[in-house]
Design a protein around this nucleic acid. Structure first.
Length: 914
DNA sequence: TAGATGACTTGACACTATTAGG
DNA sequence: CCTAATAGTGTCAAGTCATCTA
């Protein structure tokens, strides 16, 4: 446990908490209380079907969180990912005292025995949670109200029209019987004791697996529209040769940014007492928190309990919701301020407020950031006109950055070279020998670089290990922050090293020098009473120190490429702060489910609106809903030229009438082709059938415009989002992406999962995952070795087929009592019985089948990136619940970092549906 | 109310570590 | 065991969206 000492040493505070176990690892159940807020803000009348008690209990510090990377080998770890309440680092004994026990069924291993601390933590946390609308009938009533047949989905309408899509589309809402009642009753009966019960009880798959089958609802409504669309994802990255206009539009490289850094919404000061009040036990805090929670929440509670969505009344409901939610916001804000300096402030740490510039933390301790090592000159000379040239270390450093990129695609981009030359020649100075980049030969430096790389590779594993450990030792203290007395991982504590800007696509600024960041560029954000991190570079100092607890960043600096933008240091994804907002995001998306029917009905109505703005909003919303497009903010001239929905150009959307003019188009749905560069200059190509009114509307938006004009000239993202907010509190364009992704996963999993072994189920999951990735257009570049791999596989299959043929011949002969043919080398093969041969044939056939399937999968997935959706779009609770229901170890789906990131979702009820 | 600013999420890809296959 | 493929992790660019400012 070498890490223990440094960790403690670094954050030496709270000594007296130690006897109570490191406070740091008693994570509060921020999520559930947070959820209350979410609810209060947006949830209102929406139903929450089988949210179960997710997040409604003690929170387990994810192991990885308290885990030093050096101890990751610990085998106990993977099995207890979500569980250790105490860090193995800080409390070694915890590993034995709360040793995880295998859950009888699946691998949701759970602690059979929690140590006292953990138990206490559980209890304490529980109280946070009770108010979470947990009435046993909650699920039942609301699920019932979620009457699918009430909902008139667009997809249903589309079905008549577009028969093209088959992808993952559930075809009917057959199984709509509301067996939910029984389900929730079962749930309810086990729930209450649950809270006290060992977690293993809740994870007991057998019990839940038995009931889960009763739950089969399916609704067209929830089906993503995109599932009906035929998607073609081109793999080609965009290559628009954009005439470079490095607009001088960024005049101010303001060194004055010091001002800006502070100009912000009103600061809420830290609790003065926060750090000092060591005598304040967690429990006391907790209780206060609960008190205040109770004070804070009731309205939302009431709101939540108000009748769930019902399409007939929903417009009224929506209005009401809006009002309530906004007034509630104000109320929250106000009360927060009023209590700011009271001791109640403590409580907000348990339920930091969402959004609205409210408090994100009460105490924050960290050690700042670590800087890349200074440049070490290598002395290798580049050749200019064939002659070696001396460079100063500064000049050499930048030259090396360029040299090292020799074999990248950037070298083929004039813009890159141009920008590089501009910045580098400045460093060289006016009278330097080097006057022309084209005459420079960087090869010596490049080769030196390759050599260095090779050297590194050749190092013995001991050396490598030592090096790694050295690095770890240096970084250890920066890796952690203590947020509200919980030790949390910091995400990116390393300051970005200098380099050449690698903009994607045709970025006008690619190749520019990204200068070195120094302490004097960096603003630190930290708790009022926390020690200010020592500046790691002697003689220098931070630019500024702030104590802003309305934000979550620990530090920032101005982006050297675009000085009015910032680079932030945040907590890692596994932190509870991130987890909170993650959960909120999915809750919002789930809420959309309750509104979607009305929203679709509304925009469908507006397709034909006389009001052009209305029509454009309608069509845009439709595209966002159906195609999962991004919103599409305006972009500056000094950014790559990419578009999203609101910034689509006329030329991006082509109408393909069945034959000629759209006016003529009869009662046939039109076809629209999309082709544009999206985020990261990834190309989007999609041909999709749309409803006739949409087709016509697009045609109208086209008229009188040139290809480069905005398709939606009356629209931008803020108007669009403002409109969406009227339909559902908190609704924005991106929620549709989350919604469509998660609902697709949920439905596919529940529809497709059959009996079978774990491997088969994992395949089902991957297929659903892939579907989502396609919907979201998550692409990856084809690996360099792809074609080689494919041909190798083909080869192998051919070979196997040859074997098969031979076997068949041998079988024939064996049946006739003849000996087998000689093998390729002319040697006599063994005599085998027909039975054995038949078995071999079957085996070979199976092998070939498998290989062909693998090959197909490989081909299908060569341009599809599954990771992004898993990380950002798929509600982890869907996955966790599915795993529980189907006895698939969660580790088969989530890797270590995802498990840490989704710790908040691990205790979801197996019956959870998105 | 548009545009600027600020904070945060999303995204592809490069680099490393681990595992599978020969 | 070694190599190649794959999985995992880190990096940092590029989005979204709320809020502030003029």
């Amino acid at each position: 446990m070498a890490v223990e000492a440094p960790a403690k040493h670094v954050f030496d505070f709270d000594d007296d908490d130690d006897d109570d176990g490191p406070v740091v690892f008693k994570r509060n159940n921020t999520l559930s209380s947070k959820q209350n807020q979410l609810n209060s803000e947006i949830k209102k009348a929406s139903s929450q079907r089988s949210d179960g008690h997710s997040g409604s209990r003690a929170f387990y510090v994810q192991a990885s969180n308290g885990q030093s990377s050096s101890s990751q080998k610990n085998k106990a770890f993977p099995s207890s990912k979500s569980l250790p309440v105490r860090s193995p680092i800080l409390s070694p004994k915890a590993s034995t005292s709360s040793s995880p026990v295998k859950s009888p069924v699946a691998n949701f291993k759970t602690p059979a025995s929690l140590n006292d601390h953990s138990k206490q933590a559980l209890k304490q946390n529980k109280c946070n949670v009770v108010n979470e609308g947990k009435s046993p009938i909650k699920g039942a009533t609301e699920a019932n109200s979620d009457n699918d047949d009430d909902l008139q989905p667009l997809s249903a309408r589309l079905k008549g029209v577009s028969n093209q899509g088959t992808k993952g589309a559930s075809t009917s809402s057959t199984a709509q019987s509301h067996q939910l009642v029984s389900k929730t009753e079962i749930k309810g009966s086990t729930k209450d004791p649950d809270d006290e019960a060992p977690l293993s009880v809740r994870f007991n798959m057998k019990s839940s697996a038995g009931t889960s089958s009763s739950k089969l609802y399916d609704s067209d409504e929830k089906k993503p529209l995109a599932s009906n669309s035929e998607q073609k994802c081109s793999t080609v990255k965009g290559k628009q040769e954009k005439s470079s206009m490095l607009s001088g539009k960024r005049p101010l490289d303001k060194g004055n940014c010091s001002d800006q850094s502070s100009a912000k919404k009103p600061k809420i000061s830290d609790t003065p007492t926060a750090m000092k009040s060591k005598q304040l036990t967690m429990k006391a805090e907790k209780e206060k928190a609960d008190e205040e929670d109770d004070d804070d929440i009731p309205i939302s509670q009431r709101i939540k309990k108000s009748p769930p969505s019902n399409s007939k009344t929903s417009s009224m409901k929506q209005k009401a919701a809006k009002v309530v939610s906004s007034s509630l916001k104000k109320l929250n804000k106000k009360s927060k301020k009023e209590f700011k300096n009271s001791k109640y402030i403590k409580s907000t740490k348990v339920s930091p407020s969402s959004g609205d510039g409210q408090k994100k933390w009460s105490t924050l301790v960290h050690n700042g950031v670590i800087f890349p090592p200074p440049y070490k000159p290598h002395g290798i000379k580049l050749l200019y006109d064939g002659r070696p040239i001396d460079l100063t270390p500064e000049q050499e450093e930048v030259a090396t950055m360029f040299a090292v990129m020799k074999d990248t695609d950037y070298m083929n981009k004039p813009q890159f070279k141009k920008n590089f030359w501009e910045d580098w020649s400045k460093l060289l100075g006016k009278n330097h020998t080097i006057k022309d980049l084209d005459k420079c030969d960087f090869t010596p430096i490049y080769e030196w670089h390759l050599q260095e790389k090779e050297k590194k590779k050749q190092m013995s594993s001991e050396e490598k290990k030592a090096l790694k450990e050295e690095k770890l030792k240096q970084e250890e203290k920066y890796m952690w922050a203590i947020v509200d007395r919980v030790k949390e991982k910091v995400g990116n504590f390393r300051v970005e090293p200098p380099g050449l800007f690698r903009g994607r696509g045709e970025h006008p600024k690619m190749g520019k020098l990204k200068r070195r960041i120094r302490p004097s560029d960096i603003t630190i954000n930290i708790g009022k009473n926390a020690p200010i991190p020592e500046c790691p570079i002697p003689g220098e100092s931070w630019k500024d120190i702030k104590h802003d607890n309305t934000v979550t960043w620990l530090a920032f600096w101005n982006d050297p490429i675009n000085p009015k933008e910032f680079k932030y240091v945040f907590l890692a994804a596994s932190s509870s702060l991130k987890g909170q907002s993650d959960k909120e995001k999915y809750e919002k998306a789930r809420m959309l489910k309750e509104y979607i029917k009305n929203i679709r009905a509304a925009y469908t109505k507006d397709f034909t609106s006389k009001d052009v703005t209305k029509g454009q909003i309608a069509v845009a919303t439709y595209l966002i809903d159906k195609l999962a497009l991004r919103a599409g903010n305006e972009k500056d001239d000094d950014e790559a030229d990419t578009v999203g929905c609101c910034t689509l150009k006329v030329g991006n959307v082509e109408c393909i009438p069945p034959n000629k003019l759209k006016v003529k188009s009869v009662y046939v749905p039109g076809k629209d082709t999309f082709d544009f560069l999206g985020k990261d200059s990834i190309q989007y190509v999609n041909t999709v059938e749309v409803e006739l009114p949409v087709y016509n509307a697009i045609g109208q938006f086209h008229t009188g415009k040139s290809k480069s004009d905005d398709l939606f000239d009356k629209l931008d993202t803020s108007k669009l989002n403002a409109h969406l907010k009227e339909l559902m509190p908190g609704l924005t364009a991106k929620v549709f992406r989350t919604y469509n992704a998660s609902i697709t996963l949920d439905e596919m999993l529940n529809k497709e999962t059959k009996d079978g072994d774990v491997a088969e189920k994992v395949v089902i999951y991957q297929r659903a995952n892939k579907e989502v990735a396609i919907i979201c257009n998550h692409q990856r570049s084809i690996s360099k070795s792809h074609s080689a791999q494919m041909s190798r596989l083909t080869e192998k299959i051919t070979e196997l087929k040859g074997v098969l043929k031979e076997l068949k011949i041998d079988l024939d002969r064996a049946k006739k009592g003849k000996p087998p043919l000689k093998d390729a080398d002319g040697k006599q093969k063994r005599n085998l019985t027909p039975e054995v041969l038949e078995k071999k044939i079957a085996q070979t056939n199976a092998k070939i089948d498998k290989m062909e399937r693998d090959m197909q999968t490989k081909e299908d997935l060569k341009t599809v990136a599954l990771g992004t959706s898993k990380i950002n779009y798929l509600d982890p609770r869907i996955t966790v619940a599915w795993c529980k229901r189907h006895e698939v170890p969660i580790e088969k789906i989530f890797n270590k970092s995802l498990l840490a990131k989704f710790a908040w979702a691990m205790d979801v009820d197996p019956d959870f549906r998105f």
